[in-house]
Design a protein around this nucleic acid. Structure first.
Length: 424
DNA sequence: TCTGGGGTCCTAGGACCC
DNA sequence: TCTGGGGTCCTAGGACCC
C-alpha cells in the first residue's frame, strides 16, 4: 500500500521577492508591497517583518518607518507577479505526476509513490533559485493540512534549509511541533473559529488534533472535522482538478478619490465590466447574470453600499451586451449624494461557452458578428497591451483611477518596460 | 488625508412539491 | 378554530483561503 504524500511548495515573501529579482538594491532591506490603491501591506520582506510591519496594516500607519528605518514600499505589479508565478509553476510541474496550483505563490504536488522526495525538494529549490532568483520552501506530509504546517516549519527553521518532511521525524517530535503552533495558524481555522476554539481551551494545533472529531464536526461543520482528521495524518482533502473554470468572475477597485456623479461611476463600471468580460472569454465561459455594487468607505461611520442585478435573457460573453446590462444594474443601485469609494462588478451564472443555450429570440448573424468583434478586441489588446482598444464609455481621463505611486515596470510582460542591462 | 481584490465552500432557511 | 410530513432545490450570508 502506498502512503499518500503531499508537498506544499510556497514562494517566500513572493511579491517582494519578485521585486528584488529586478531591483537588486532591494536585497537585505525592509521592503513591503502594497495592495491596490497603495492601501494595505500585502507582502513583507523578512527585514520588514523584523521592524514590526504587520500583514494587512494600512500603509499610512507605517509610512513613518520610511524615514526612521529605511522601509521601502512598492505598489503591486500584478502582471509581473503573474508572469513570474507561471514560470515557477511550469518548473514545479516537472517534478511530480500531479500538481494543483493553489494560489499565485503556492502549489501542492502529489508525491505519493515517490520515495525520498526530500532530496528532490532540495533540487527543486536550487533550480528555482538558479533559474528565476526566487526563494521557495517545501513542506512534505501525508495530508495537505500537515503539508501546510510543515511548510511553515521549513520557513521558520533556518537549519532545515527550506525543506521539511513531517514523516521524517519521530511522533514525539511531531507532537512537540504541533504544540508550538497556535490553532489560528492551522489551514481552515480563521479568526472566528479560532476565537471559539480558544474559548473552549483549544489553543494549539495539538489541542485541535486531540479534540473529539465527531463532536467538533457536529458543533461546527464538516470542514472542522476534516481538519482534525487531517491533523491526525489521514487525508480527506484530495488534489483539485486543474483548469476548471470559475463560477464567478469579479472585477472591483477602490477609486483614487471619492466619486459622486453617476457619469463617473458609469465610466468605472464600464471599465470593470470590460475587464471581467476579458477574463470570461479567456476562460471560454459565458455569463448569465451581472451584479454591480457601489459603496462608500467601509470605515466611515455612515458607510453605505447598494447593489443592482440584471439576469440576461441568454448567456453571453459580449462586452458590449454585458456593459449595457451593467449600466442598468448601476442605475438601479445609484443614489446621489454619497461619496463613493469603490465599485465592483460580479459576473454570475458562469458556464462553459461550449453547449450554451442560445436565446430563442437572438439572431445567428448577430452572434457571429459579436464573436468576431470580441476576437478582434482581445487580439489587439493581447498584441499591443491591455487598454489598447476600450469602450468609449470608460472615459479617457479616468481621474477616478486608483493610486499606484510606487510602481515597478512590467519587466516581463511589456516590450516597453523590459529591464535594461548596462555593460561596462 | 490615506484601510485590497478575487475566489471557494458550507449551512440554514425559505419556497415549493407531493 | 382546527391544520402532516418529508423531500428537494435555491439563495443569501458567513467563514475561510491567499
Amino acid at each position: 500500500m502506498t502512503v499518500e504524500k503531499y508537498a506544499l511548495v510556497d514562494c517566500n515573501n513572493f511579491y517582494v521577492s519578485c521585486e528584488r529579482v529586478f531591483n537588486p538594491k532591494l536585497a537585505g532591506k525592509p521592503v513591503v508591497v502594497l495592495s491596490n490603491n497603495d492601501g494595505c501591506v500585502v507582502a513583507r520582506s523578512n527585514e520588514a517583518k523584523a521592524i514590526g510591519v504587520k500583514m494587512g496594516v494600512p500603509y499610512f500607519k507605517v509610512a513613518h518607518l520610511e524615514k526612521e528605518q529605511g522601509l521601502i514600499a512598492r505598489s503591486s505589479n500584478y502582471p509581473l507577479y503573474g508572469d513570474m508565478s507561471a514560470r515557477v509553476m511550469r518548473i514545479l510541474s516537472q517534478y511530480a505526476p500531479r500538481q494543483e496550483v493553489y494560489s499565485i505563490d503556492e502549489c501542492f504536488l502529489l508525491v505519493g509513490g515517490m520515495s525520498e522526495f526530500e532530496n528532490t525538494a532540495r533540487e527543486i529549490r536550487a533550480t528555482v533559485q538558479q533559474s528565476l532568483g526566487l526563494p521557495i520552501c517545501v513542506g512534505i506530509a501525508p495530508t495537505k493540512t500537515l503539508a501546510k504546517l510543515s511548510n511553515a516549519v521549513a520557513k521558520s527553521t533556518g537549519s532545515l534549509g527550506g525543506v521539511f518532511d513531517y514523516a521524517s521525524v519521530s511522533e514525539t517530535k511531531q507532537t512537540r511541533i504541533l504544540r508550538a503552533i497556535p490553532v489560528r495558524d492551522v489551514w481552515g481555522v480563521g479568526r472566528k473559529l479560532a476565537e471559539k476554539f480558544i474559548a473552549m481551551g483549544i489553543t494549539t494545533a495539538l489541542d485541535l488534533r486531540e479534540s473529539d472529531a465527531e463532536q467538533m464536526g457536529k458543533q461546527f461543520s464538516v470542514v472542522t472535522k476534516r481538519t482534525i482528521t487531517e491533523l491526525r495524518g489521514t487525508p480527506c482533502v484530495g488534489m483539485e482538478a486543474m483548469g476548471e473554470a470559475r463560477k464567478h468572475i469579479v472585477s472591483s477597485r477602490s477609486f483614487g478619490r471619492a466619486v459622486y456623479t453617476l457619469e463617473e461611476l458609469e465610466e468605472a463600471v464600464t471599465a470593470y465590466a470590460s475587464k471581467a468580460c476579458e477574463k470570461l472569454r479567456r476562460d471560454q465561459s459565458v455569463a448569465g447574470e451581472i451584479s454591480v455594487v457601489i459603496r462608500t468607505s467601509a470605515y466611515a461611520d455612515d458607510s453605505f453600499a447598494q447593489s443592482g442585478e440584471v439576469v440576461f435573457d441568454s448567456a453571453t460573453d459580449d462586452t458590449m451586451v454585458i456593459v449595457r446590462h451593467a449600466m442598468q444594474a448601476l442605475r438601479d443601485a445609484y443614489k446621489p449624494g454619497y461619496a463613493y469609494q469603490k465599485a465592483g462588478v460580479t459576473l454570475g451564472r458562469v458556464t462553459p461557452r461550449e453547449g450554451r443555450q442560445i436565446s430563442l429570440f437572438s439572431q445567428p448573424e448577430q452572434n457571429e458578428k459579436s464573436e468576431k468583434m470580441m476576437k478582434a478586441l482581445d487580439a489587439a489588446n493581447a498584441k499591443w497591451g491591455r487598454g489598447t482598444i476600450f469602450l468609449a464609455g470608460e472615459g479617457v481621463e479616468k481621474s477616478w483611477k486608483m493610486k499606484a505611486e510606487h510602481k515597478s515596470p512590467a519587466y516581463t510582460s511589456s516590450w516597453l518596460e523590459l529591464p535594461r542591462v548596462r555593460t561596462y
